[in-house]
Amino acid sequence: MFPLSNLVRAKGDPKILRSGPSSLTMADKLTRGLGWFSIGLGLTELLAPRKITRALGMRGMEPLVRAYGAREIAAGVMTLSTEKHLGLASRVAGDGLDIATLAVGLVRPGNRRRDNVALAIAMVVGVTVLDIAAARATKVAHGRNGAGDRRKFADRTGFPQGVEAARRIGTTARTAGSA
């Protein structure tokens, strides 16, 4: 599959013949999927909260569902940005909140949709596992191992004759007025 942009390239500019492996890691791809999922779920919660509360036997909680929708969208945007670790962390926190809220539905007296609630909890737990996995994998793929060694490049002056000689070049050029 060639990018459409091959069509618009100037004649004589190189065009893709065969694509190689991507710099995107599995962690990046999973994270991206979760980001879009977050936005999709958030939009549903924001736009159709009643459908959700009805299915869960939790009527009257629409404003909360809407607020959670906004939260999902924010977390989704963050997860898709270069600050994905923050996005994933806020998703994990959000998952906890979702589970706690659903648990209320489970114990709500007279709720006849408990089976649906249980199913929802199972789904959220599943997503939480993915979120945590993505957060861990992101840390492994993109984190720095260790604090970095200040002395590692202590000999890399860049000046073959040493720093003091370089300073002298600077000051002599100055006084000679030729820099």
Partner: peptide, 29 residues
């Protein structure tokens, strides 16, 4: 950093948060 030294600055101060990069900056004066 190296350019400012070669151009005769009295004092060059370098700012970052990555230790090995700061170390390399120090090496350059």
């Amino acid at each position: 950093i190296r350019s400012a030294i070669l151009l005769g600055a009295k004092q060059v101060v370098a700012i970052d948060c990555v230790p090995e990069r700061l170390g390399m900056a120090e090496a350059g004066g």
